[in-house]
Design a protein around this nucleic acid. Structure first.
Lengths: 240, 240
DNA sequence: GAGTGGTCTAGACCACTTG
DNA sequence: AAGTGGTCTAGACCACTCC
């Protein structure tokens, strides 16, 4: 069941992209929208709040809700969008190689790369993403195999997120990410064929993934070829 | 006037940091909080929504609101926090040099670095941030001088954001940021004294800043020494 | 003063989790 | 069946913008 406020949100969003409400124009007032959609003001406000969060509109007391003009809009990132989803949105040719696909168990001996406790059974998956012929990213995943079962190399070649959400019907709730620039290792050079010699660092996006029940289930280290890396964000100033 | 829901948000947030509600425990139910604070459920829900956004709690229907255990919590980033605020939070010794502070006007001849239209009067400010003795960041700002007036070198040495918000009483509403890795120029090497020779890229955070009335007023290009760069984010999976 | 969005209330029903 | 959070309603007052 799709909530009413969500439908209204979608409707208005569509209207914005179809220039029914062009950039810099104002949406109808909340009261007018109440009349249009035959609903309560609170429901309208929830819909507008979502648009505000996403950076599509800017609300101002006493004035109204103004459509924000877009620069960055084409890249609907931030949030937890997965690699596969992202690249699909933008017609890139992507090939995924899976040089490592194995089951391991966390031991005291293991370099403590992950935050998983000793004894946790994991999938360890390394994937190389080749975008339009360029070896661009190394994705290294550690995923709890007691939570996400029956992963296969085939699934890894497509989208693990999609499998988790659509097939297992679990939902990835949130993640903590850290972006740094790390020195290139020999293994990096082996995997990222064609990486220019003068580069000495890769851009690393490390993230911890959690399910809705707050289970920590996934640790991913994505290492990007620096000239192929871009991260976009829409940020609202905290009123805190 | 501070809204009630905001006070409740702060109260609960404090209680979380003071371990009144430890990690992984559940907050009192919304109905219980209604009784505790003698208010309506909607007000409680607004307070909890804010905590949810910030990644302090995870709400689950039928269960309750669970306190999320923190890894990354110490670094309350994401959003639009300025450099100065950030570094202050974490007791670093910061020195700021201001090698360039000038007024310019956008001309057709100008390399179109910024998105400002021709004729816009700007401050052009270059700052170098020296953190604990290490030349770490070059901040290059282009700020509309017809919007932000009376900027001085002295203000630039402290925090421009603080000046805008506290002295001009304007509010920075939102920004679009892009993170990339850019090749090092000769000017970069001159400004970032001590930058190791083997480095060939800096991490660039480019951002466009907008006021609450959607005026585009600031373009900043921050170039970070790669071994000094870190960007942390808490991201919720979009339900879109 | 009229119109806007921001806060707050009190109540209702629903979907989900747990015993 | 009882308790939880999620949605929705209808109304009130306030702070702000603009004329």
């Amino acid at each position: 069941m799709i909530p009413l406020y969500f439908k209204i949100y979608q409707q208005v969003k569509d209207d914005i992209s179809n220039n029914v409400y062009p950039a810099n124009s104002f949406l109808p007032s909340e009261n007018e929208l109440v009349a249009q959609f035959h609903t309560s003001r609170d429901t309208i406000r929830k819909a507008l709040a979502k648009l505000d969060e996403e950076g599509l509109i800017q609300k101002r007391r006493g004035k109204g809700s103004q459509v924000i003009s877009h620069q960055l809009r084409h890249f609907p990132i931030s949030g937890l969008t997965s690699f596969h989803e992202l690249k699909q949105l933008q017609k890139f040719q992507v090939v995924t190689e899976v040089p490592i696909f194995e089951r391991i168990t966390v031991t005291t001996g293991t370099k403590n790369i992950t935050l998983f406790p000793v004894g946790t059974p994991l999938f360890h998956i390394v994937r190389v993403r080749i975008i339009d012929g360029i070896h661009s990213v190394i994705d290294e995943d550690y995923i709890r195999s007691d939570v996400i079962s029956n992963l296969t190399k085939d699934i890894a070649q497509h989208s693990i997120y999609e499998y988790i959400e659509k097939s297992l019907n679990l939902s990835v709730a949130y993640a903590e990410k850290t972006i740094t620039a790390q020195l290139i290792t020999n293994r990096d050079r082996e995997l990222l064929v064609g990486l220019p010699e003068e580069e000495n660092r890769l851009i690393q996006v490390e993230s911890q993934g959690y399910l809705a029940d707050t289970t920590y289930f996934q640790h991913t280290i994505a290492r990007h070829r620096p000239d192929q890396f871009q991260f976009d964000e829409f940020a609202r100033r905290q009123t805190t």
